[in-house]
Structures are given as structure tokens and as C-alpha cells.
Simulated scan of single mutants.
Amino acid sequence: MKKAPLALAATALLLTACGSSGTSATTESGVSLISEGKLTVCTNPPYAPFEYEENGKIVGLDADIAAAIASDLAVEAEMYTTSFEGIQSGVALSSGQCDIALSGITVTDERKTVMNFTSSYVDDNLAILVPADSSITGETDLSGRKVGVQQATSGEKYAKDAGADTVQYEDNGLLLQALQTGQVDAVVGNITVLSEMLTADSSLKVAQEIETNEKIAAAVSTENTALLDSANATLKKMQDDGRLADLREKYLGLSQ
């Protein structure tokens, strides 16, 4: 399902060119952006409910947060599809492909060395997803089993640490397909995302939810502190006025 459609791929190439050409702009509030009038946002759909395509447009929790951050900067948010490896490694930000990354990103100490994180907007756990008739009941059953993971994620690290024979996929659309067709015995990933897979296919079940208390946040280049401050100010306003709670309930079913 994922590899970016041609139209999105073309947009990605165009944005990359813009980002590397030095044609940057500064908002009235003093925030530097790679393109005038736009907040270019790196993301990696399909990763519902954080980001996914609907009627040719990227929507979801991250898209709505990006729109709010852009609105406070008096610019438009433009979603830019790129690989999650490029996002989590910091390369997409440091090379000027985008201003900010919103892609269900878990905050880790390693990632903090190559990007700056905003305050978190979702707390999450990991989970193991299996077919309903699977004999896998939890972490202890993963050793030696073929387990699907999205590359460069905390789910991949967890599965490897559990002794699984991990199989990498670029996105969760491919992960779901692999589990449905028996290419893998289980999938390990964030519970918020795996719950969406359960909605799409009732023949699956969560074998175990793993309490990791991961923090999901947006990320910016280590050099763009002005954008970090602005994004944090928007997230605080959204927390205070209830918009974040509304979005978590809308997309994640969380009433917190």
C-alpha cells in the first residue's frame, strides 16, 4: 500500500529541491522556513490514525496538529511523504527536506542527539498483534518466530530483544498485509496504530500490550529553535483549550 504515489513522490522531489536551493523564508514572528508561506511537514503514511491518505490528501492526528502549528505561524501546512528512516535519523530535517516532522515519532535518547523534540502530545505503549487462532500469547513466544516490524521503530527493537526473526516493512499497510497473508507470525508496534489494524480486520487480536509509556512528539532540526518554541506554544494552547484532548478522542478513542 505504501510507496508514495507518483504525485506525492513528485511533490517530494520538488520540495527536496526547494529545501536544498537556499530559497528559505522567515515568518513575521522570526521563524525560518524552507519555503515562503509554507510549513513543510515530513510524515510517513500510511500510519493511521496519525497519518493516512483520504481522497488523495494526507489526514490524521499529525496532519491536524501540523495545521494548527502552521496557522499560528500564519502559513499553510504542506505534508511531505518520506521514509520513516529518513525522519527518525534526522536526515530529512538536517538536509532541509522539511521544517518539522510529525509521524507518530517516539522520543528516544538516541533521536534526541540528531533532532529537537516538542512536548509530547500522545502517550503510547507497544503491543503484539497476531491472528485470532495464533498460539502466541506474549513476549516469551516471540523467540525464533517471524515477526513483522516497521523499520527503525521501537517495535523493531523490542522484537529483536525478544529473540524474534524480524522482517522489516516500510509502513503499516505492508505490515498488515504480511500478517493477513501469513508471511509473518506476528507484528509488534504501537498499540494506537495496531488498534487501527484490528478495526480493519476482526480476525486479528492483541496477544499482549507492553507497558512502555512512550512519548510521541513532533521534531525539528537542532538548529531551528525558533520553530521549536513556536510549535511548543501551539501545543500548549491546544492542551489548555481542549483541542488536543478532542483530537486524541477523535483519532485514538482516548478521553484523556
Score class of each variant (00 low, 15 high):
116 N>Y: 06
186 A>R: 00
176 L>M: 09
144 G>D: 13
169 Y>E: 04
171 D>C: 01
130 V>F: 01
173 G>C: 08
178 A>V: 05
118 T>F: 12
149 V>Y: 10
118 T>C: 10
125 N>C: 02
135 S>R: 02
169 Y>Q: 06
153 T>S: 13
164 A>I: 08
173 G>K: 06
176 L>Y: 06
153 T>A: 11
169 Y>C: 00
178 A>W: 04
115 M>R: 10
144 G>H: 08
137 T>F: 04
183 Q>D: 11
159 A>I: 08
156 E>K: 14
162 A>I: 00
146 K>N: 12
156 E>R: 12
184 V>Q: 04
177 Q>E: 03
132 A>M: 07
142 L>S: 10
139 E>W: 04
130 V>H: 02
177 Q>T: 10
135 S>D: 13
128 I>L: 08
185 D>W: 02
125 N>S: 09
158 Y>Q: 13
180 Q>F: 03
166 T>R: 13
127 A>R: 07
116 N>K: 11
182 G>N: 03
128 I>G: 11
153 T>F: 10
115 M>E: 09
120 S>R: 12
133 D>Q: 09
131 P>E: 00
123 D>C: 00
191 I>Q: 09
158 Y>H: 15
150 Q>N: 12
118 T>H: 08
189 G>W: 07
169 Y>F: 15
169 Y>N: 04
161 D>F: 05
123 D>N: 14
145 R>H: 13
128 I>E: 07
147 V>K: 03
182 G>P: 02
183 Q>E: 10
173 G>A: 03
129 L>Y: 06
135 S>A: 15
146 K>C: 12
127 A>F: 05
123 D>G: 05
132 A>Y: 05
166 T>P: 08
130 V>L: 01
167 V>T: 14
120 S>Y: 09
180 Q>L: 13
145 R>N: 10
167 V>R: 06
189 G>R: 03
115 M>Q: 14
188 V>M: 13
126 L>S: 10
181 T>W: 03
190 N>C: 06
182 G>S: 04
152 A>I: 06
120 S>E: 12
150 Q>F: 07
120 S>G: 12
154 S>D: 12
130 V>W: 01
115 M>C: 08
163 G>F: 09
158 Y>R: 15
189 G>T: 03
130 V>M: 00
134 S>T: 02
190 N>A: 15
146 K>W: 09
160 K>T: 14
144 G>T: 12
178 A>Q: 00
121 Y>H: 15
120 S>H: 15
152 A>D: 14
143 S>T: 14
127 A>K: 05
131 P>K: 00
126 L>A: 11
174 L>Y: 01
160 K>R: 12
170 E>G: 15
138 G>D: 02
143 S>D: 13
187 V>L: 11
116 N>W: 01
141 D>N: 05
169 Y>M: 01
183 Q>P: 00
122 V>I: 10
184 V>D: 05
